[in-house]
């Protein structure tokens, strides 16, 4: 197994891709923490801990969960909303993958073609990708590790991402719910969210919490 560690950046001007450093993707039931293959539950618990410890935890839902195109998408969307509320965390969508013209507002949306803006001038310290097509997510994760010190989590609908600090594969709404349960459990144990207060669009987490 590779000794390489997938840690938050900024690692290099153009950091190597984890796959080329020998990190392999997990098999079903497994997940990755910083390049190590671990049981999936362990990774989910660790992700919950990371999200709670963040000052600006942010969830990036991608097209596969934003758009109601198959049976799974609305289920995951619902779970993500609950997760965002319970953590709390911002939800910043990756609505599509176009190089947007003339500008993109990184507080409103993200896009892998605009890497300098991808994580909001490094204001986001922990982010989570869900439902972004793997090729684009692979790009986004690499650029984040190249340019910022953001801790990345990828809840992948398919085979996972070595370039994320934590990666879970075959994500369903149930796995997001496992993450919610892990957050709840940690909170019950007295772990407090370190998130700075924020207001997002029409939705203020404080008001929704009730």
């Amino acid at each position: 197994m590779s000794e390489y560690k997938v840690l938050p950046g900024p690692e290099a001007y153009l950091p190597p891709s984890a796959a080329s450093m020998g990190i392999t993707l997990p098999d079903p039931g497994e997940a990755l923490i910083e390049g190590r293959i671990v049981p999936e539950d362990e990774a989910i618990e660790y992700a919950a801990r990371k999200l709670l410890s963040a000052k600006v935890p942010t969830i990036f839902p991608g097209p596969q969960v934003l758009w109601k195109w198959d049976e799974m998408a609305p289920k995951i969307a619902k779970a993500l909303r609950e997760l965002a509320v319970i953590l709390p965390a911002r939800l910043i969508p990756m609505a599509d993958y176009r190089p947007k013209y003339p500008k993109i507002d990184p507080a409103v949306e993200i896009n892998p073609n605009h890497p300098n803006l991808t994580i909001w001038h490094n204001k986001i310290d922990v982010c989570m990708f869900v439902g972004v097509h793997c090729h684009l997510s692979g790009m986004g994760l690499k650029m984040i590790r190249g340019g910022t010190d953001c801790y990345t989590i990828a809840m992948c609908l398919m085979a996972g991402h070595e370039d994320a600090c934590i990666s879970v594969r075959d994500t369903t709404d149930e796995k997001i719910r496992k993450l919610i349960d892990a957050v709840k459990k940690l909170k019950a144990q007295g772990v407090k969210s370190q998130a700075l207060p924020f207001t997002q669009f029409k939705h203020d987490y404080k008001s929704v919490k009730e």
Binding site: W67, K68, K78, L80
Partner: peptide, 14 residues
């Protein structure tokens, strides 16, 4: 009907 946003994430869409 397929060109629809999931209700739970509708408000965060640009």
């Amino acid at each position: 009907e397929k060109i629809q946003i999931c209700e739970d994430l509708y408000d965060i869409m640009p």
